[in-house]
């Protein structure tokens, strides 16, 4: 009940934030632009629409999660609204989870809206709704949930600008860390390999949620990959949230 109340209040805050609408507007522009790009392309036009569309949903969703998520907790502390909230009979972890779920709800609605436009544009070309595309969007959403948790974690102890920088770095590292896997295969056994394995285990691998290529080109994916990717997302999000709760629990609100 208390987490729900905070989540709904956070949702209200997010949907009254102009940044959200600005980003949504740009997503719509990008989706429409994919149609224009397709018209200029020789070959399979639908693939371009699918490719640009999924990339737009992923990119602007990530920006929404970071730009709104990094300000959520910080603003509460900076504007001192947290004073009245924490003095009420709620635990600090309930406050943090409420904030998290509020933003996740906002992102869910935004993702659904962006996907609807995307699916309609694809439908106009192919006259069918492809389940694979919806599955790719679902994994984009799982990635956004994880990014939200990361943004909230940084927001617990640093300013929105720094938190945004940290979160974008997390996103970039997450999408390039698979390179380490290739490096590991080429490294001879020894201390260097152990060190690299340690780093690879710690760093996020956000490519686990990337099923865009498979969706666009119709490549087969074993169901277990979907399962492991979803599990990875849930466990990683849980871990980041635990970390955020631990930091937030000990904070003095001066």
């Amino acid at each position: 009940m208390k987490i729900k109340a905070i989540a709904i209040n956070t949702f209200r805050e997010a949907i009254r934030d102009r940044v959200l609408y600005l980003l949504f507007f740009f997503t719509v522009v990008a989706l429409l632009f994919s149609r224009l790009l397709a018209m200029l392309t020789v070959g399979d036009r639908v693939k371009i629409i699918k490719d640009v569309g999924l990339a737009s949903i992923s990119l602007f969703g990530m920006l929404m999660a970071i730009l709104i998520g990094t300000g959520l907790v910080y603003k509460e502390i900076d504007k001192k609204t947290v004073f009245t909230l924490i003095s009420k009979p709620i635990q600090r972890w309930q406050f943090l989870l409420g904030k998290f779920f509020g933003l996740v709800l906002t992102l869910f609605i935004m993702t659904v809206l962006m996907s609807l436009i995307f699916i309609v544009i694809v439908f106009l070309h192919t006259s069918k709704i492809e389940g694979r595309l919806l599955l790719a969007v679902l994994f984009i959403f799982i990635e956004l949930v994880l990014i939200t948790a990361v943004a909230i974690l940084f927001s617990c102890f640093s300013t929105p600008i720094l938190s945004s920088l940290f979160s974008v770095s997390f996103y970039l590292i997450g999408h390039f860390s698979w390179g380490l896997e290739t490096l590991l295969l080429k490294t001879k056994p020894g201390p260097t390999k152990v060190l690299l394995q340690g780093i690879y285990a710690l760093l996020p691998d956000l490519e686990n949620f990337n099923f865009k290529t498979e969706a666009v080109y119709g490549l087969a994916v074993q169901p277990k990959f979907y399962f492991y990717s979803a599990l990875y997302g849930i466990v990683y999000t849980f871990f980041i949230l635990m970390l955020a709760v631990l930091i937030f629990k000990k904070r003095d609100f001066v």
Partner: peptide, 8 residues
């Protein structure tokens, strides 16, 4: 703030 649990 100490009484209200805002600072420890």
């Amino acid at each position: 703030k100490c009484v209200l649990g805002l600072i420890f």
